[in-house]
Amino acid sequence: MKNKLLAGPYIAWMAIFTVVPLAMVAYFAFTTPDGDFTLSNFANASEYLPIFLRSIWYALAACVICLIVGYPVAYVIAHSGANVQRVLYLLVTLPMCMSFLLRTLALVALVRDTGIINSFLGLFGIGPLPLIRSSGSVIMGMVYNYLPYMIMPLYTVIVKLDPRLIEAAQDLGCDSVQCFRRVILPLSVPGIVSGITMVFVPAVSTFYISQKLGSTENMMVGDIIERQFKGVANQNLGAAMSLILMLLVFISIGLMNRFTDDDEEVATI
């Protein structure tokens, strides 16, 4: 009973530094700079609808590509020997701890018009290929930065899969494709869901990647919000857009979690 009190300082901390700040975002979103109630911030924010849609589209594309690229990697890691597994897992998580700003800058040095890849192709008389300043390059930047967030949860789920289930499926006459589709893939759903969440949230709200790898036509919500707080300083509009972004993220996470819950129900039947 007494033990519960140990969480007291933590709950107080989180109330002051998480809940209150979010309430302040809501307050700023619904007021003018003078503090009067208004809805005009949302009216102004709605002008940025195409940018919201673009951000969602980039983030979804990055999720799908991360899943397709990352799943085989997670599978290979999970089926390696114990020591190889440790090393590979470390190699996946290591980039996440290294300055993503400098790494993204190096990615730019690789793909820009006078970059390393194009100079290399130039030796064979190819190019220069337009590898940068497009939707594709922004999405590639996201995949590069957030792929580890997809591989990690996938690996965690795949490594715990009971090999007896796969043997049972094979005994019952599944070929390897059926086995994957009907046993392995459905059992990986929790990993897929948490991977998609972990990629989608930072991808939809990024501003550095689009600045470095995109053009003004690839601006994202994060760029606009950053500008409201650091540049032209319309904090009320920025707050309204932050609020919309937050709701967007919470709704998509809610939808994703529903997806796993349903699946667990199916699994228990």
Binding site: A15, T18, L22, P202, F229, Q235
Partner: peptide, 30 residues
């Protein structure tokens, strides 16, 4: 109670970093 506290714990994890940053800066200015 436990669920409520765990939800509180999850907020900074699922909230986009830019929103966390903006919200804290508004609080500090206030």
């Amino acid at each position: 109670m436990r669920r409520a506290v765990m939800t509180l714990t999850n907020i900074p994890l699922v909230n986009p970093e830019i929103v966390t940053g903006v919200s804290l800066s508004l609080l500090f200015v206030f």
